[in-house]
C-alpha cells in the first residue's frame, strides 16, 4: 500500500541573492513498511527532502501526498495536526524534553493526541520495553547515554503508531555499538509494527540495513535501489 508520493517536488531557497535549488524535481513513492535510506553528500538536499516530507518546510513546487492527503493544501494548524497523527520524527540530536522522564517523553505525543492516561502508560511501557529501556523509564535524559536517549526518541516517535517515521541522521551522534543496537531495534519495530522508516543518513551501517537506498545529489535523485528486489533480480 502506498503511503507517500512526491510529485515534481522542488524547493528553492531565496535567503541570499543567489537562489539555491535544494530539491529539484523529485518524484518518489513509498510503500507501507519500507525501510529506506536517503543518502548523499553534505548539502545534497537529504535533510531538505525529509523536512518537505514532514511538512516542516513548504515546497516551492510540486505535491506531497501522504495517504491521499496533499499536505501542501493544508492550513498551518491542519498541518501541525496532520504531523501529530501521521508522522513520527527522530532527530540527530535526540531532542528529548530534559525535564521529563523517559516514559513521560514517550507519552508526550500521545498526550498531545489526547490519549487517555491508562492507554498512554501501557503503550509507553510497551514501547520502552521494545527498545530495551523499561528499567530506565523514570530516568531523565541527562541520566541516559546518547544511545539510550536516541532509543527513547525512537520510542517516542513510534508510540502513536504513525504512518511513517522520518529519521534525520539518527546514528550520527552514536558510537558503533549504540548505532548497531538502535538500528536493530528500528528494524525489528519496522517488521513488527509495519511502520515505514525513511532515513536521511551518511552512515554505512544504516545503508547496510536499508531495503531501499535513494541517492540524492544536488537536489536530484540520482539512484533509487530497492535492495531485496534488485539483488533478487
Amino acid at each position: 500500500m502506498q503511503v507517500l508520493e512526491l510529485k515534481n517536488l522542488v524547493k528553492i531557497y531565496n535567503d541570499s541573492e543567489v537562489k539555491v535549488k535544494a530539491v529539484d524535481n523529485v518524484n518518489l513513492t513509498f510503500e507501507q513498511g519500507e525501510f529506506t535510506a536517503i543518502v548523499g553528500p553534505s548539502g545534497s538536499g537529504k535533510t531538505t527532502l525529509l523536512n518537505l516530507i514532514g511538512g516542516l518546510d513548504a515546497s516551492t513546487e510540486g505535491e506531497i501526498i501522504i495517504n491521499g492527503t496533499n499536505i501542501g493544501k493544508l492550513k498551518p494548524w491542519e498541518l501541525i495536526n496532520f504531523r501529530l497523527f501521521n508522522i513520527g520524527f527522530v532527530f540527530q540530536a535526540y531532542n528529548l524534553i530534559p525535564v521529563m522522564t523517559a516514559r513521560e517523553n514517550v507519552e508526550f505525543i500521545m498526550q498531545l493526541q489526547g490519549v487517555e492516561k491508562k492507554k498512554r502508560e501501557k503503550r509507553s511501557m510497551e514501547i520502552l520495553s521494545a527498545v530495551g529501556l523499561a528499567e530506565r523509564a523514570n530516568s531523565r535524559p541527562a541520566k541516559l547515554s546518547g544511545g539510550q536517549q536516541q532509543r527513547v526518541a525512537v520510542a517516542r516517535a513510534l508510540s502513536t503508531k504513525p504512518k511513517f517515521i522520518l529519521a534525520d541522521e539518527p546514528t550520527a551522534n552514536l558510537d558503533s555499538k549504540s548505532a548497531e543496537s538502535l538500528l536493530e531495534i528500528m528494524e525489528k519495530l519496522n517488521k513488527d509494527e509495519n511502520i515505514t522508516f525513511i532515513f536521511s543518513t551518511h552512515d554505512a551501517r544504516v545503508v547496510a540495513k536499508a531495503r531501499r537506498v535513494i541517492t540524492v545529489e544536488d537536489g536530484h535523485v540520482v539512484s533509487d535501489i530497492k535492495v531485496e528486489t534488485d539483488i533478487k533480480s
Binding site: G54, P76, I80, N81, R83, L84, G88, F91, L112, R156
Partner: peptide, 11 residues
C-alpha cells in the same frame, strides 16, 4: 522539535 512533532503554536 515541539512544533515538528505536532504541538500546536497555541500550546
Amino acid at each position: 522539535m515541539l512544533m515538528a512533532v505536532g504541538m500546536s503554536r497555541a500550546s
